[in-house]
Design a protein around this nucleic acid. Structure first.
Lengths: 336, 336
DNA sequence: CTGAAAGCGCTTACAG
DNA sequence: CTGAAAGCGCTTACAG
């Protein structure tokens, strides 16, 4: 496997020349190049990326990292898809680390990726001032944040996210126009910036239409399936339950649906529901779900694009990219 | 960042000694060890994994690869979860490559992982005699195959999968006992071994109960959402449509549900359905879906366990682990 | 118990 | 256009 050497021997050149052929350097004569390429094919040689990465401090290693809070969440699966597709087209490999909302685990993956000397990373901060990620940026790595930005922090970084407030605003307004006023909001974990933005959208819409906000209708615990189910049950147990519910992410929606179905309640006759996050199978639900779509795919793709730009040009100005959401009206809400 | 050296300078020892401390070698005096550890902490040093991996051909790199055909499929997400949890507990990082059923892409990820010198890989072969994976094994890497085995191939390898035939058999038998005889089967891609096994389970159950098999009721194209939707539509368009349908995976099920709902058909009144693959949100569907559960999580966990054993002891006997499936009866099938 | 030195497989000035 | 040589950051016999 001492391979550069073997190829060199077979082609009767120095290892430097073989290296040049591999790296498409200009300064190799066509004849030599052909000979080396033949040898490479004959030996079925492929360069040892570990050695390449160790040696070349300047050139690209063609490897990026992707650090995600929860691979169980279909939204992040879409993000992966977007990142991978773009990266793959540009001949980059993607190393994925899933930290499951656990900051210790996040740090481990970030450390590994750094010591792997990746070209850059795409990461979803675990909260607004995620020191782990800040440190990575300070260490000089190219980083693009997705889904959640970094706030009040002394580093400059690209962010790709969605206009959460506006997206929720539209959904709540739609519900109000349908005649709903007792609109519940099942939110995610209160420390996550997106949670706050989504609550703000809810409040803004209620205010605009002069609907009184009943704080007992805004429920939060975690951002997962269990929480969605649990909080929905609590809502249904209220003396005066809501006529509509807005669920602030994928997993919460699914959990809420479970509780609704368990009670034998019919959507939308007994209760209307809109979820944040559309899923490719949202129309496979019964009834097909009305949802606020944010395209994880687009976010991932844009993030990958920005990251590759940063890698090429580290001095590029950093920006925030706010993609817009879309209200997909299907059949889970009824007019009162 | 020339760090071993810096630590060595600060602690006033040689780099060899620092290396020994890092690798918990026995032969360092407590006093020296303490001094080095202090220096490491003061400099916030962490070893360059790239260099470590390049240098140490024998010791473990604490990195495994996971090569999957379709990260969009929730089953594989469960697999990831299982692998990661086990790996993480044992201090291994997991590098994920998603080849999207594309063999060229599969080869690229396999090549990257090999040149990354991972300790081993977990992979789902793209078909029964996947030469890409066979080659990796021949190159001397520890590999555990999941979901799909390798057949008629001259390498010895651990396989973790599920008893597909038996799982489908039980589901079809359940349908027959409910009084169904016109039972359709929407299968996956015919080149994938699991597809064949699942069809065999279907046929075996039909035979056992003397139900005539109508070949026009067995539909196949690809293993994805679109195919599920398309094939279900074709089934519904038949002169004498089936009273029940078995869908051979996650994505096919979701696609079929879409077509059923589009027609305004009610499950289970108008048509009964059982899907292969349970999802954590299957009970969030309306009605909650009856399904054959194979635990992607368990498969992933078992595969990770086997892989770590193989890494420790490459001569370990290779085996097939066939996990069993479970029919989860919920509410998507009715008695005729 | 510790250090000097070789070497993992590459890339890249430098010299010719 | 090509080669000899240094060196990336580590680990590990070997010697003491």
């Amino acid at each position: 496997m001492s391979s550069l050497k073997k190829v060199a021997e077979r082609a009767n050149v120095s290892i430097a020349t073989v290296s040049r052929v591999i790296n498409n350097a200009q300064l190799v004569s066509p004849a030599t190049q052909a000979r080396v390429e033949l040898a490479i094919r004959e030996l079925n040689y492929s360069p040892n990326r570990v050695a390449q990465r160790l040696r070349s401090r300047h050139s690209s290693k063609r490897l990026i990292g992707l650090v995600l809070p929860d691979i169980q969440n279909p939204f992040y699966v879409d993000v992966i898809h977007g990142v991978e597709e773009f990266a793959y087209q540009h001949n980059f490999a993607v190393m994925i680390g899933n930290f499951g909302q656990d900051q210790k685990k996040e740090k481990i993956y970030l450390d590994i990726l750094q010591s792997e000397k990746v070209d850059g990373m795409i990461a979803a901060p675990s909260h607004g001032k995620d020191e782990n990620i800040v440190q990575v940026i300070k260490n000089g790595f190219s980083v693009v944040c997705i889904d959640r930005g970094l706030v009040d922090v002394d580093v400059d970084v690209d962010v790709v996210k969605v206009n959460n407030k506006e997206g929720v605003f539209g959904a709540i307004e739609y519900l109000i126009e349908l005649g709903h006023t007792r609109i519940a909001h099942i939110t995610g974990h209160p420390l996550i910036p997106t949670t706050l933005e989504r609550v703000a959208g809810y409040e803004a819409a209620m205010h605009k239409h002069n609907v009184q906000i009943d704080q007992s209708l805004i429920k939060s615990s975690n951002s997962d399936y269990q929480s969605g189910a649990q909080l929905m049950t609590e809502l249904l147990d209220m003396e005066e339950p809501p006529s509509a519910v807005f669920t602030a992410n994928n997993l919460l929606t699914l959990g809420a649906l479970k509780s609704i179905h368990e009670r034998g309640l019919i959507i939308p006759d007994d209760i209307s529901i809109i979820g944040f996050d559309d899923m490719y199978w949202s129309m496979s639900l019964n009834p097909p779900l009305t949802a606020v779509r944010q395209s994880g795919y687009d976010i991932g793709k844009k993030a990958a694009e920005l990251l590759l730009q940063n890698i090429l040009n580290p001095n590029k100005l950093k920006k925030n990219f706010i993609l817009s959401t879309e209200l997909i009206v299907r059949k889970s809400c009824k007019r009162l």
